[in-house]
Simulated scan of single mutants.
Amino acid sequence: MLGCVIHGQDDLRVEEVPVPSPGPGQALVAVRYGGVCGSDLHYWRHGGVGDFRLREPMLLGHEVVGTVVSYGAGASGPAVGSAVAVHPASPCGVCPECVEGRRNVCRDTRYLGSAARFPHVQGGFAAQVVVPADQLRSLPAGLQLRRAALAEPLSVALHAVRRAGDVRGRHVLVTGAGPIGCLVVAAAKAAGAAQVTVTDLLPAALRYASAAGADTVVRADDPDDAGWPVQADVAVEASGVAAGLDACLRRVRRGGVVVQLGMLPSGPSPFAGNLVVSREIELRGAFRFDGEFDEALELLASEPAFDELVSAVLPVEEAESAFALAADRSRSCKVLLDFGVLGTP
């Protein structure tokens, strides 16, 4: 079967990989769609993401949906043939973080398509993958696989908004209108935010943010744009660049909350730390998610507008073109790989 394997920086290959068999407690899933994530792009372009560096070839992909093929011994779950989304994380369950209910920062988690540990955890960009059976989630009624492929990034966005606290009736600033930033807009609106302002350098990205529900969009390189909030209550930094964090710290109100969601480059990052002190701003990190995955599926089922954020679907045979398109934010938002038979719906 075909899989999408990263061998190193700028070395992405679509190649034959072995068909897996489910072991005890595992399920075999026929993958239909896989979303190309920013971390997948980092592995492709830089050979790593943040502090996680490639040390061996790795199947990419952690945003995958498909249908159940079979189960291994002692495993059960949605019926064979059912449409499912795959929760990509397997926390250890015993570390202090897991015991405290913060499984998303488990120190010994296994996450699909991640080089955080060695040997790496192979990802889901293959025609069939084996995962723990308890990671399968049945799709809510009416939710099709194509839209369900947004469940993982939407979960990230939901967790970031949750880290911000109660946003009901609040003004939320989001810096960065990539796929995650746009989904933060939707998550903030779903959580009751009264106004959401989004900044980005690219007009195309801002159009996607508007489609996601942004009330105001602002060119990040225009400090005189009247759309900038004088004092946002909450800011979510989703661009992963220091300039975005700086904008959040300068635009949030005194005593406000800034959530750093975008993965900054490894090593020291400059930021306006004095503002954190003099304005008593709370700076919080947001990493992945846990139970928000089920919430994301319900939200996707209830809102067809999410379809507008899927800008392209390409067959796995064209993976390199799909990655190049996903990396070009002037032409795309969320790009999906299709692992189904060519020409099928």
Rank of each mutant, 00 (worst) to 15 (best):
A73W: 03
P96C: 04
F52A: 15
P91E: 05
M58S: 12
G61K: 03
C92S: 10
P96E: 01
A89S: 15
G93W: 04
R55K: 14
V86R: 04
H87S: 13
P88S: 07
T67G: 07
P96D: 03
P78F: 01
S70A: 15
P91C: 04
S82A: 15
D51A: 15
V94F: 02
G77I: 05
P91R: 02
G50K: 00
S90E: 14
S76F: 08
E56Y: 07
A73P: 05
A85M: 04
G66E: 09
V64K: 06
V68I: 12
V80F: 01
V86M: 10
G81Q: 05
V64Y: 03
P91G: 08
V65N: 09
V64I: 15
S82K: 06
A75N: 03
G77A: 08
E63P: 13
A85Q: 02
C92F: 05
P57C: 10
G72I: 02
V86C: 10
A73M: 10
G61A: 00
V80A: 10
L60Q: 11
C95Y: 01
P78W: 01
G74M: 00
E97L: 12
V69M: 09
V65W: 06
C92H: 07
V84D: 07
L54A: 11
P57G: 11
G74W: 00
T67I: 00
S90R: 14
F52T: 05
L54K: 07
S70K: 05
V69T: 09
E97G: 07
A79R: 15
E63A: 12
P88L: 06
P78K: 06
G66A: 08
S82M: 03
G74Q: 00
G74H: 01
M58N: 12
S76D: 14
E63I: 02
L59P: 09
P96Y: 01
V64F: 08
G72S: 03
